[in-house]
Design a protein around this nucleic acid. Structure first.
Lengths: 225, 225
DNA sequence: GTCTATATCAAGATAGAC
DNA sequence: GTCTATCTTGATATAGAC
């Protein structure tokens, strides 16, 4: 029952076991870092929480920092792309903006942990040069994940706006979202459920208005044909 | 030369000396916490940087955490209100939105330290209940500081929008700003100088558009007379 | 590949001198 | 009020057994 089930090996090759150990350690570390912070989480704590001991941890990672970097580089990317899939699946739709905001606010509320972990990464990145690149990538991926949806919303609401790329708008959208989420975690009442949705409607309406009014993207003088 | 200059004491009363020591310690701590993080900054480091020794620190604060909380409660408020004054002074104006974005982006670029310190506080607040209240206050103060300016911009650009308070808009503006600033510190090119200004123009144009179009603040069905 | 035991070090906090 | 010296603890990282 535990042998050759299509694959020629008995249980787990040594290499596979190691991979599994790595994964479990990374999972445990993610939760602990998120809830207690990087500095206040001990390696022993991580190992224990994953069901191993320190030795196993140091056998799989150079040190605590490298584990942290690994988390930033690989793990979060997975999470983000999975969010992207959910969002894409829901894009069938009539009200992309509404979907966007509802799904995202839900997601943010469910795991404040993830938000905290991101903040933790951000702080580490602004201080440690070797984290910057990975952090930049991860921020870019967040934008990538939403860009399609934003583009769809743009098309639906009056088509393209000349001189304004979907990516630029997406950066604004994501930044706004993150700002609101952070505030909401501190003072929930100041950021009602629909505020993000509201802001998005204003933003997109304004994009159309600006386009037709003819305010120029670069200079201050707005003039169109 | 050092006596009774209007005040009846020679130099510094013991109480005043203590206050001065506190201030210097708080200053030093602020810089160190901002650049290295709370956890990675030692009390000895703080004391030394302020020109004192550990004993002085523990004579003025219960412990490292209490010092941190003091910083969050008093120091940052000062800084924010000073920003508010600068902004207010510039409100004479023709283009409040432009002023707003230019001044803020400048301010953010000048001291990334402050941004990092805020993130540090935020993380501490989401984890430690005793920091939450202070953090909420400080977030509120940021909104307070900008609300007048936003209100002015609203009036200038088509007057009040029914059903939308200046404060609500300010919360959006501040959140967006913080989101953009944080991204900019990681990947500067993704957040060009004027992006915030652009976004503000979209936002305010959209506010007017939404008002006249008649999209209702609460429900999803937009219909007007 | 993982565990246990330990070397090493650093940091927070205290106590008594000045 | 502030300083110096020290107590105490806890954490990273290593080494050798299994």
């Amino acid at each position: 029952m535990n042998e050759e089930n299509g694959t020629p090996r008995r249980r787990l090759t040594r290499a596979e076991a190691k991979v599994q150990t790595r994964e479990r350690l990374l999972d445990a570390a993610a939760h602990l870092f998120a809830s207690q912070g990087f500095a206040d989480t001990g390696v022993e704590e991580i190992a224990e929480s994953a069901g191993y001991s320190v030795g196993a941890l140091y056998s799989n990672f150079d040190n605590k920092e490298q584990l942290f970097l690994e988390l930033l580089s690989t793990r979060l990317s997975d999470r983000i792309s999975s969010v992207a899939e959910i969002l894409d699946a829901d894009t069938g739709g009539e009200d992309p903006l509404g979907n966007l905001s509802r799904l995202l606010v839900q997601a943010a509320d469910r795991n404040a942990e993830f938000v905290a972990l991101q903040a933790e990464f951000w702080l580490h990145a602004v201080r440690n040069p070797e984290f910057m690149a990975a952090m930049a990538t991860q921020l870019r991926e967040q934008v990538d994940a939403l860009e399609r949806l934003v583009a769809a919303a743009l098309e639906q609401r009056g088509g393209e706006v000349p001189g304004v790329s979907a990516r630029t708008v997406t950066i604004v959208v994501v930044s706004l979202f993150q700002g609101l989420v952070r505030r909401r975690l501190i003072e929930p009442d100041s950021v009602p459920d629909d505020l993000f949705g509201q802001a998005l409607r204003w933003l997109f309406a304004g994009l159309r208005a600006t386009a037709s009014t003819g305010a120029h993207p670069d200079s201050g003088a707005g003039s169109n044909a």
